[in-house]
Design a protein around this nucleic acid. Structure first.
Lengths: 219, 219
DNA sequence: CCCGATTGTCACTGGGTGGTGATTAACAGG
DNA sequence: CCTGTTAATCACCACCCAGTGACAATCGGG
């Protein structure tokens, strides 16, 4: 098992050069937040604790208590950061496509969502955390994620609306659930329900299946 | 005064079953396995450890090492038990329905799967474990689960085959992923992707959506 | 200059964990 | 009745964790 500490550790021994980051509170806060995100993305919510974060940030855990009020505050800070996720990782336009129908929109949206989630370990770990625990910490994080997601969808949706007679909320929830589970399962075991999800080719097959489902519903 | 005997016969801690279990190896083994399953179902893979299981079984953890060779062996024993899951919880026939088409079959299958997973905490926790960790323990458990599931599906499938031109493996993987994620998300947070999943009515809406998706693909 | 406030480090407590060797209690065969 | 075997417990180890109080170092204002 790869040790979280070894991965994150800097050239330690604070005695040798303790002048790297002296009395720079803003810098230290950033280092802590970065370490927390890095640790969470790499190791997941298990092993995510004060000591590990402090070690990763190369500072004393006391500072985490002082600057963030403990793990809870730190998680909240991560949540606040999550708002910027959309801007960084997901295009705001449709990529030059013309989205004529609601089906076009959903197909494009789902594919983008698959790709975005597939190469964002932090998001994946958060999703995994969501379905494993229900603490106040997770709830906040989850909320921030949902908010960012909703914002992004709204931005793309424009004036398109779902066809009548279809419970779009329910159907879309099913689709999102499917994507999230497949990406998570793939990230941990490389497959999902008997379908291999390792190579890019595997994912293309999966994507085709999802597209087909979307078209089967929305035409 | 035979104080020692009196002490031993008393259910001195919170053991669930106060039946006297003196020098009853088979009984102790059963108690351990039961406690493990109960604990895993209730608390999930976090907090699932030697000490907790021993406490739940009302015996010394040493016995777990002796009889099961540690946690790994215990998990394996749980996996072996999982084979009986199908027989207990899922009907072997279609419930008096006539499954004329592959679409009929899949619709029925998915609905049964939703219901079965919804009221089996242990299975849910195992699924959650699967997408959160990738240790040898989990891999074994996961394998046992997949095997039991495949067996059950085969038993119902009969001679029906998917329509040509549809990648049934991929599509079904998407469907199963969706169901698993929705049930898990519901169990922890009572909703999934903005869709409330608390009441039975909520679940009926979700089920309708899933059925619609199935029919959209398989007709 | 001094002194208070801020930044950072250290050392410690109390509790939980996995794991192991030594010990006791009940039984069964001779 | 004694004795060896098995079931079960106890005592202990080293480690990791969260949390806290005390201390050292640095800066900045008066």
């Amino acid at each position: 098992m790869p040790n979280a500490i070894a991965v994150l550790e800097k050239p330690l021994d604070g005695r040798a050069n303790p002048e790297k980051r002296v009395r720079d509170r803003a810098g230290t806060e950033r280092a802590i937040l970065d370490a927390a995100k890095r640790l969470l993305a790499k190791e997941g919510f298990q092993g995510f604790g004060i000591n590990a974060v402090a070690r990763g940030a190369g500072c004393d855990k006391q500072l985490i208590y002082r600057y963030y009020g403990g793990l809870d505050g730190l998680v909240e800070a991560i949540g606040a950061d999550l708002g910027g996720w959309v801007k960084e990782r997901i295009p705001e336009d449709a990529g030059g496509m013309f989205l004529l129908t609601y089906g076009d929109l959903m197909e494009r949206l789902i594919v983008l969502f698959i790709e975005a989630l597939r190469d964002d370990p932090l998001m994946r770990k958060i999703v995994a955390w969501e379905i494993s625990e229900n603490t106040e910490q997770v709830r906040r994080l989850s909320e921030a994620r949902a908010k960012a997601l909703a914002l992004w969808i709204d931005r793309m949706r424009g004036s398109l609306t779902a066809p009548k007679g279809v419970d779009a909320v329910a159907v879309n929830a099913v689709l999102i659930a499917a994507v999230q589970h497949m990406v998570l399962s793939s990230a941990t075991s490389g497959q999902c329900a008997g379908l291999s999800l390792k190579s890019q080719k595997d994912w293309e097959k999966a994507t085709v299946a999802v597209k087909r489902i979307v078209r089967g519903i929305y035409g």
